[in-house]
Lab assay of single mutants.
Amino acid sequence: DRIFMTRTEALEFLLKAHQTAVDKIGHPSHKQTPADHAAIEALDRLLLDVRARRVDQFQINASAAQIIVTD
């Protein structure tokens, strides 16, 4: 599946995904793992790359739809 978004929409989408990941590892019942921190770092890099126009398409994980940034 493909989803087309403007750059602004894609950045909002990534910010929400980032916040969800941060909230998940901050929850008291969740045991933090290196994979959790790696996922947040990957989202940080992706946010910067989309914002800087170095990336025009991405996929958060293998089961997610491919996001295509349109400007």
Rank of each mutant, 00 (worst) to 15 (best):
F4V: 09
H27P: 06
E12L: 11
A38Q: 11
V50Y: 01
K31Y: 15
A62V: 07
R54P: 01
R7W: 12
I60R: 00
Q59W: 12
P34N: 07
A17W: 07
T70N: 08
L15N: 09
L15I: 13
D44P: 01
E41W: 08
A65W: 10
L15H: 11
P34M: 06
L47D: 01
A62E: 10
I3R: 07
A65K: 10
D44W: 15
T70E: 09
T6K: 06
F13C: 04
A64H: 11
I3M: 09
A62Y: 06
T20N: 13
L14P: 00
T8F: 14
V50L: 06
V55S: 03
R2V: 15
I68M: 08
M5I: 03
Q59K: 10
Q19P: 01
P34E: 10
P28M: 05
A39W: 14
K24A: 04
F58K: 00
M5T: 01
D36F: 05
A52S: 12
G26M: 15
F4N: 05
P28E: 11
A42V: 13
T33P: 07
H30L: 04
L48I: 13
A38P: 03
D56H: 14
S29M: 06
L43E: 00
A35Y: 11
E12H: 11
T33A: 03
V22N: 03
A39E: 14
A35M: 09
T33L: 05
L47S: 03
T20Q: 14
T6Y: 03
A65H: 11
R7T: 07
A65R: 06
R7G: 02
D36M: 09
I40W: 02
V69W: 01
D71F: 06
T8P: 13
R45V: 07
V22P: 01
A10W: 00
L43R: 00
F13E: 03
E12K: 12
L14N: 00
A17H: 08
T33E: 15
I60C: 06
D56G: 10
F4R: 06
H18M: 13
D36N: 05
Q57N: 09
A42L: 14
D44V: 14
F58C: 01
R53I: 05
I3T: 05
N61P: 07
L46W: 02
A35W: 09
A38W: 09
I25Q: 05
T20R: 11
I60A: 04
L46M: 07
R7P: 04
I25F: 10
T6R: 04
Q66A: 10
I67K: 00
R7Q: 08
A38M: 13
H37G: 06
R51W: 12
Q66S: 10
Q19R: 13
I3G: 02
I67R: 01
E9Y: 03
D49I: 02
L11K: 01
R2Q: 13
D1T: 07
Q32I: 15
T6F: 02
V50P: 00
R2Y: 11
V22H: 06
V55Y: 02
K24N: 06
E12P: 00
P28C: 05
L11P: 00
A17L: 12
T20Y: 11
A65N: 07
L15R: 14
H18F: 13
A52K: 12
D1P: 13
Q19Y: 05
Q57M: 13
I67P: 00
K31G: 15
D1L: 02
T33N: 14
A38C: 05
L48Y: 12
M5R: 01
F4L: 07
T33K: 03
D56L: 10
S63C: 11
Q57V: 14
A62F: 07
D49S: 06
E12V: 10
I68C: 06
D56Y: 14
E41H: 11
I67D: 01
Q19N: 09
M5D: 00
A39M: 15
D44H: 14
V69H: 01
Q19E: 08
I3L: 09
V50D: 00
A10L: 02
I40K: 03
A39Q: 12
I25A: 07
E12F: 10
A21L: 15
E9S: 05
D36G: 03
I25M: 12
S29Y: 08
A38Y: 11
I60H: 04
E41V: 12
D36Y: 04
H27D: 15
S63V: 05
D1K: 10
A10R: 00
H30P: 02
A38S: 08
